[in-house]
Design a protein around this nucleic acid. Sequence first.
DNA 1: TAGATTGTTAATCGATTAACAATC
DNA 2: TAGATTGTTAATCGATTAACAATC
Lengths: 201, 201
Amino acid sequence: MEEAISDKLIDRLTLYHCILSYTVNANEYVSSAEIASLLKIDDSLVRKDIAFCGIQGLPKHGYNVVELKKGIEEKLSFHNKKDVFVVGAGNLGTALTKYADFKDYGINVLALFDSNPDKIGKTLAGITVFSITKLKNLVEQMNIDTIILAVPPQAAQSVADELVAMNIKSIWNFSPCILRVPENVTVHYENIISGFLRLKK
Amino acid sequence: MEEAISDKLIDRLTLYHCILSYTVNANEYVSSAEIASLLKIDDSLVRKDIAFCGIQGLPKHGYNVVELKKGIEEKLSFHNKKDVFVVGAGNLGTALTKYADFKDYGINVLALFDSNPDKIGKTLAGITVFSITKLKNLVEQMNIDTIILAVPPQAAQSVADELVAMNIKSIWNFSPCILRVPENVTVHYENIISGFLRLKK
DNA sequence: TAGATTGTTAATCGATTAACAATC
DNA sequence: TAGATTGTTAATCGATTAACAATC
């Protein structure tokens, strides 16, 4: 296994990658100071992050945009594909399913699940909404171990219990609630409330 | 002004608050170890965070749930109301507008804006969708300085430019793109891609 | 050459954990 | 009383910044 990458570093590298995607057709080189000023962070932090990706720059010029972009993609394993399901086809689940081009980042959202009969069978951005009753079967068939959970908070714990029973190992939880899961299951909390409160600071 | 609270601390405190909301009717006391084990963090960190909120516990019992919940609400200024607009009435903007009871946390989403005529005039969870052409006027009328931005990435920079011209000071950006803004404007990046990549670790 | 920018080390800062005395 | 849990200090760990020699 690769050296562990902290969440904060993943965060910054994806932001650098974002900048490079815009820059790639305009400039051949980009400097650490340019990246740093766009993100309002320290330029030596940018250089350190880039060095961590194994990319070397050119004094007086900066970093080759194409090379740096590839270096980040390599370090974040964009090529390493992972299949996931989204549970909950409300606005949030739908937004996540359609979000950007996840495929580019190595995440394949293969299916959406919901309990609402009105939604079942519909297709969103090429992804079919299945009945939640089919979840267990498809998880097993397709060897899924990671779920994006976008159900209402009242339903979240009971769905989580089902997911645990299906041997899911990682849950990305968008509901404002805590999930009780065994030791060997990881819950990533997407804490929207916290995001809101930061705005008030 | 209050002592600054780090983003990580805000994050944890909102998660504690979440736990307390469930616990409040079941138990009178909760221990730092119980909270810590639900979140898989260290119990002394929980005690430190709680002490920071100015709440004292009772040896052998733990913390009074009601008191602790209030202490967190106080520290995070839930009572201190802030008005915001959401720009972009797609699935994500809609989800954010309807998300939980933001009002409980002191965030009032007052209006949604979109450029799509089909959406304008509709009402979502009691919140009206206005034409983006009305944004400037309403920002000035209602003294808004904070915007939640949920537009497609291609539109994000040009909307951001308009927001800057309207004297907006803080933008919560959900698009996978970097916004170029002046020094005195803050962009909070909600980095969904980074969230996805964490799942792959 | 002079100057801009990298690459990297050491210093600093901040956050988490360990440990344990105090307390109910 | 004995035991569980807090409150808090010191130790550790990790992340960021400052500084500057190396380099093109």
